[in-house]
Computed example of a mutant assay.
Amino acid sequence: MASHPSDHEPNRADLRKDPARVSGMFDQVAAGYDRTNTVLSLGNDRLWRAAMTRTVAPRRGQRILDLAAGTGVSSVALARSGASVVAADFSPGMIAEGRRKHRGFPNLSFVEADATALPFGDEKFDAVTISFGLRNVVEPKKALREMLRVTEPGGRLVVCEFSHPPSKTFSGLYRFYNDRVLPVVAKTVSSNADAYDYLNESIRDWPDQPTLAAWIREAGWTDVAYRNLSMGIVALHRATKPGAATGPR
């Protein structure tokens, strides 16, 4: 069984996405994670999070699962609607930081969870969302099936993930930023710059928008669609679980 590196040794995951190494890497960057993301995304992370929240369209009385929630920034945005939100992440460090930052926030709970083996019963949630986390899962197709299992019939899936800009010109500029600029900035603002080298690699290796849409359909979701944000740097995928919705409970 793989073990986490020591707290003092910088942890760098790779494209094999060993769960222990990926989790350990996120543990080490948890404290400054939100600030670093805002800097590296040039503030666009807030726009992407707002688009995700609008697409989920949370309502009071709904139960929503926010996977790969990190420190719970996206979960708080969803919980402000009055929906009951479970923020789940497989990094204990992220969960601990989220509980510390959002202690006492109503309708919000934190759970350590593996996206490929969710610790929830069948059909427990009106909506499931995952932002910038699916590409870090070692078996993303299995995770999509697990999300389907825990969603009630008629419930919704929203996946917000880095993708591939369709414009070749813009794609070249984006690749230059990721390859040359981002590593320099990460060394300045992050406690573990090597972690962001992995994240850059994982973005480059991730499938394009139509491929991810096909994966979602294969998992059993229907009404699959996506739209590009920031010229395709990010894609927002949405889908529905077959069957009639039973409504908020």
Rank of each mutant, 00 (worst) to 15 (best):
T246M: 04
R238E: 14
G121L: 01
V56G: 10
V111W: 01
A2E: 09
R238N: 09
R217M: 10
A30R: 10
L47F: 15
T188V: 14
A213V: 02
R156W: 09
R59F: 05
P119N: 10
M25F: 12
R180C: 09
T129E: 06
V189T: 05
R103T: 03
A193F: 05
T188E: 06
G172N: 09
M147R: 07
T188P: 00
Y226I: 02
S190A: 14
I233T: 14
G154R: 11
K168S: 15
D18N: 13
F162G: 01
I95G: 05
Q62P: 14
E161P: 00
M231Q: 11
G220C: 12
R60F: 07
Y174T: 02
Y33T: 01
D66V: 00
P210H: 01
I95P: 01
F120S: 10
Y226M: 02
F105C: 06
A30P: 04
A79S: 13
L212F: 13
I95V: 15
G220M: 12
S75E: 06
L144F: 08
S41D: 07
F125S: 02
V181L: 12
E9H: 10
P140M: 05
I216A: 10
P165R: 04
K17L: 14
S167W: 10
L134H: 04
R21H: 08
V56M: 06
G232A: 07
